[in-house]
Amino acid sequence: MKKSSMLKVEGVSVSYGPVRALENISIEVDRREIVALIGANGAGKTTLLKAILGVQKVQSGKVLFLGDDITNSSTDKVANMGLGLIPEGHLVFSTMTVLENLQLGAYHNPQDFNDNLENVFESFPVLRKRIHQTAGTLSGGEQQMLSIARTLMSKPELVMVDELSLGLAPKVVSEIFDILGDLNNKGYTILLAEQNAKKTLEFANRAYVMETGRVVLQGLTQELMSHPEVRRAYLGSNV
């Protein structure tokens, strides 16, 4: 596997008014990797993803994507360059149909719409059945699938997933993790922000552990899983 840096975050700091949300964060994601950000609620995972995408303003530091400096670029431009975010809370355009949601996902990539649609339906067969249904009437798991599918329609270089498992049944979560694994095998690079540390560490290649806006630990997931601090704080001490 050829290793090349796809996303590079260098010393990024973010503040909400007087409150520091991210303090000098540096992470790196290589092509075809699955990288996880784990940490408790409020550790700054979502803020980091938003900062990468330009939704949240960065005070200092740099974000490089495919070698280009995208620090504080406009979100639509960054998304157009191939950065796809699957936001927290399985967000869909609930008044629109499944097909319309997917068409919106392909906003920057309308050329091979039908081929992409076929690929997406292959990964998420349930969406094919619901194609003309209003997205608001889907179940939570189906909405999360639609949210992923919508992102895939733009053929992103890097897929960022925020809190995949939040509010979903464990069975559905496993199913979606399997699909993400398949996507990785097909060549997608994935950056995953999750509270569910056990599941995530089993799934990812590398991980960063975040606490109150800083990266406190990083490394390969096998190593992290045996790290005493991680075992105590995230996996339960007697795992």
Partner: peptide, 11 residues
Amino acid sequence: ENSLLSSIIGI
């Protein structure tokens, strides 16, 4: 419907 989500998907 949702301007933040719209900008995230690149609109």
